[in-house]
């Protein structure tokens, strides 16, 4: 039977799913990227291979996320697309009537506005990672609380501390200040969750027509505290799908299904030697950083050159 692999390689986590013709999830996995997309994808594919029943054969591979291009070359993917489109397509497959997607990931946050199943508007955070998952996890570490418990603890607070929402640096000094003057941990954590929501709505969500049904996705959607404040501040019901963290991967798998052919892909990549070499081209003052990609010592692609003459 035909099936399709979708991989979403984010800054913090790598997500992979295999779906069949009816978009049912046959295999899925979620592991940490640990700063090494190539190795983590190898690991991910091994896990997925073990979950995959033998009668299924891969007929399409899609990659998305910030390392999509690199992994796309590594796996010979037939579709390489940005995470905004992938998320929208994935979500629409399960919730066709959704009108707003809120997404907070490890390094970025985005909002996608949909009407009648098409993207009509979107926004993504710009320069800094304020109010994203990596800020939450670094604060969790500072308070020595496991990030998984963050949401539960936030829910116990009755009086969330007010924490500056604009910038992580200010938020952190505010946090320390509030702790030193004696606020309880619950209140601080709840305040932090609230500040994430405010930051998101004031930056990414500014000027966007947020209407229900609303769905909340990305790693941070697992945090019940953040979810609670989204519901409270938007004054609307906000859904969270149990597969919310996989939506990007599902979306790109669906897109790869649409463009698939009879061609079969094999997943034996653990022995493939995949090396990237970066060096500066000094032929003109641009000093472009050229990245060359070698698969089994064979040069397959290179990018980074502005003039396009250097391969």
């Amino acid at each position: 039977m035909k099936c399709y692999l979708g991989i979403d390689i984010g800054s913090i986590s790598t997500k992979g799913v295999i779906i069949d013709e009816e978009n049912n999830i046959i295999a899925s996995s979620y592991i940490w990227t640990e700063g090494n997309p190539v190795e983590s994808v190898k690991k991910l594919v091994e896990i997925l291979k073990q979950q995959l029943p033998e009668e299924y054969k891969i007929h399409g591979i899609g990659t998305t996320g910030s390392a999509r291009k690199l992994i796309g070359i590594m796996l010979n993917a037939n579709v390489v697309k940005n995470e905004i489109t992938a998320h929208a397509v994935g979500t629409l497959a399960f919730h066709p009537d959704v009108k707003t997607i809120l997404e907070i990931g490890g390094q970025d946050s985005k909002i996608i506005i949909l009407r009648n199943g098409i993207i009509v508007d979107y926004a993504m955070n710009t320069l800094c990672a304020a109010g994203t998952g990596s800020f939450l996890s670094s604060q969790a570490k500072r308070l020595s609380i496991p990030i998984e418990d963050f949401g539960e603890i936030a829910l116990t607070s009755k009086n969330p501390a007010k924490i500056a929402a604009r910038c992580t640096v200010f938020a952190e000094s505010d946090l320390i200040h509030k702790a030193q003057v004696g606020y309880s941990k619950q209140d601080i954590i709840a305040g932090l969750c609230k500040s994430i929501v405010l930051n998101y709505l004031n930056n990414v969500g500014k000027g966007k027509k947020i209407r229900g049904p609303i769905i909340f996705q990305g790693g941070v959607s697992k945090n019940k505290g953040v979810l609670k404040y989204f519901r409270e501040i938007l004054n609307e019901d906000v859904m969270v799908d149990e597969n919310g963290h996989l939506m990007g991967a599902i979306g790109i798998a669906i897109l790869s299904k649409k463009e698939s052919s009879e061609k079969q892909y094999d997943l034996n990549i653990e022995d493939i030697k995949f090396i990237t070499k970066a060096n500066e081209c000094n032929k003109c003052p641009n000093n472009c950083e050229i990245l060359r990609i070698y698969k089994n010592d064979e040069h397959v692609d290179s990018w980074g050159s502005m003039c396009g003459k250097v391969k």
Binding site: K81, E83, T85, N116, G117, I118, M124
Partner: peptide, 17 residues
């Protein structure tokens, strides 16, 4: 590039629908 690509896909999707 990511944002531009998404923008292009969005306007194409809008045009087709």
């Amino acid at each position: 590039k990511t944002r531009l690509e998404a923008f292009y896909e969005m306007i194409e999707m809008r045009k087709n629908n």
